[in-house]
Design a protein around this nucleic acid. Structure first.
Lengths: 221, 221, 221, 221
DNA sequence: TATGAATGAGATTTCATTCAT
DNA sequence: AATGAATGAAATCTCATTCAT
């Protein structure tokens, strides 16, 4: 069996094991067994547990980015509108993570909590997606509402919030069976869109002054 | 030294170690040393690594909920408006997580990835916060925009998204030190507020039909 | 509470724990708790686990010997016949060990398997009982069958076998509920008595020559 | 070195250590060192201390049963008389236990005092031997003394007593080196044989009435 | 290319024992 | 007379990793 194929089998097994058990709790024994090969072979191909984990991160990150980019596909002619790209990208994100829960767990839960070598790798991917989303948001805002006028920092924060909201909604959708992934995506898009629109029109919230509490006939202090 | 004091020292050390290293990578040796006691004493007081972790979760969850609830404080007379409560709660949330990054890591990153006994404990806390936020959103919508007319389900989804966004922003704000709690809270509040307003006015996003892509003169494959 | 009483409580707890768990598996914590005192007090009174175990052995050994000797009671006037003494002693042995299973376990199962300091203590007691039984057997044989003519060594072996048979029967009686301890004692006495009588009459078994096996038309070897 | 060989070495070391130190006091470290391997290898092959102990029990029990059965060997043609089989079996038993004192200690002293999983395993072996002896006794009685007329239950009790006596004598013979296996077997065989003969002739012991003790002029207490 | 055999280092947990009061 | 607080040492067990073939 050619090396490339075997390596993919090992990565499959590793992603599954890391995703379900966590980096530390996953054992090389289990991974090798799940891959159907002997342990020394895993070491021969992937050198160490750290490097194996790293390879998992890279593969899953690339797959996720490819899925999102591919779906949003800004290369078609004539160009697809930005809001539609955003929607397609979000949908692809939800679909992909739902289809590969272990891969998503590796990226989202595991890699970020295992210290520097790994956090950096996943941070790079995250940055790529966030900046992509940021671009789309800005463009969508411009095309829909004219001049953006949103400070860059606010856009970055929004992108971050959007991703968190997406993750939260994904978990919510999984628990309440009646809510499909698509429905969750729609809710999110809806929310983001309405929020974006409101923001562009300057609908901002400012803390209204709190009415002074009624004086308590306090004795002292 | 009395038992109660020692226990708190141990919990402090454990939260810090769990938060930084992760549940599996944290060793009881390190925790005991950080707490300035011997390992057997940790076991005498807290029985096992699992129970120690559980105690950390409970303590940090209680502290977080207390901080948020205390800040939002719906008990004052005359009552504070719901939007203000939401803002105060969010600010307290960001402040608290910024002040106790390890505690937040235990709740958000570690507990949720270590299987059932722990995930359930933190899920309960999260549910409490979500339902609290749901109440506030519904009330804020009613008082600010008249009759809500938002279906209950949409409000629930909004609350889920809001909490998820907050969680995500907490991590972001912790990394980029330059973002203060107030700033993060403002970003989120703005977005939610604008989104709420937009939604109540029926500003919904619907996928616009994609123009059929130009036929590609496909060569082969 | 006076020291002597407390000490007996501790010994009670220790015998029970040692008997049920074994020397090594019994923990001083459990013993102290069962005795209703704190651990340091156990150490104050009995110094160490070894000495505590030793004290248990001595107490239980003394009690067993006293029970057997008291029942067989060779001091009454007029003297009780030897066979009757043997029967009484055996019955007392069975009764005592049945009433104090933990004490018997300490002597029989635990002390003998925990290396030298303890094995010696219980061996002394065993020697005392065996020699007592040996005397009775010899005397019984003499009074019942005239001149003993049994070599001393054979008598010692018989006593040893008798004790083993007694233990085995005790276990058997416990499993098959229908066999009472008394019945077992009777069976044993019966067996010993009949065997003794046979032996005194010279009824010995000698290996009869084995008939040569039929020649097998073996090819080779 | 092939796995099967290593496993036997480990079992050898384990039997020796368990037999001399007892189950709890024996440490896996010591066993591994005695076997000349590292501790992890012991765990790799035998999984846990409990399973290692269990494997020891099974191996030693099988060896003992095989030795006894092989010596008694009821398959030869023409058949060996039952009394001769009994003698051969007893001799083999004493020889075997003398040759493998640690194995015998594991079966007799250790396994029976370590709670249910182990006690049951050794009880099964014992039951097998007891029923084998029961058969031989019944057959020997029939062939030597004509119609048995001994109730089945009495034969069973006899077999229990015989096996117990043998076990006890095995310990005795091991301590007093001067007692050979043949000697022990002869002692026991003699006793059993004489007892069997006596029983068949109705020589039973019944408690003779104790003469009323002379009234003691009791002073006080 | 592939593996059976093997281990050093370190994990959690328990226990007999002591000290200060 | 009695105990709450504390620990050094050692137990069982796991794991990432390597060697010889």
């Amino acid at each position: 069996m050619p090396r490339a194929v075997r390596e993919q089998q090992m990565l499959d097994a590793a992603v599954r094991t890391f995703g379900q058990r966590g980096y530390r709790a996953a054992s090389m024994d289990e991974i090798a067994e799940l891959a159907g090969v002997s342990k020394p072979l895993v070491y021969l191909y992937l050198n160490s547990k750290e490097q194996l984990f790293s390879a998992c991160i890279r593969r899953e990150a690339a797959a996720l980015v490819a899925a999102v980019r591919g779906a949003a596909g800004g290369t078609s002619v004539p160009p697809v509108p930005a809001d539609r790209q955003l929607w397609d990208g979000l949908t692809a994100f939800f679909t992909h993570t739902a289809e590969r829960p272990d891969g998503w767990a590796v990226l989202h839960s595991q890699a970020r909590t295992q210290g520097e070598p790994f956090a950096a790798e996943v941070a790079a991917m995250r940055e790529e997606i966030v900046s992509f989303v940021t671009t789309l948001i800005a463009e969508a805002a411009r095309s829909a509402h004219g001049d953006p006028s949103l400070p860059e920092r606010e856009v970055a924060g929004l992108a971050q919030a959007l991703v968190g909201a997406a993750e939260s909604l994904a978990g919510w959708a999984n628990v309440e069976d009646s809510v499909s992934a698509k429905e969750a995506a729609a809710t999110l898009m809806n929310f983001a869109w309405a929020g974006l629109g409101g923001l562009m029109e300057g609908r901002r919230w400012v803390p209204s002054p709190v009415p002074a509490p009624l004086p308590v006939p306090s004795s002292s202090l």
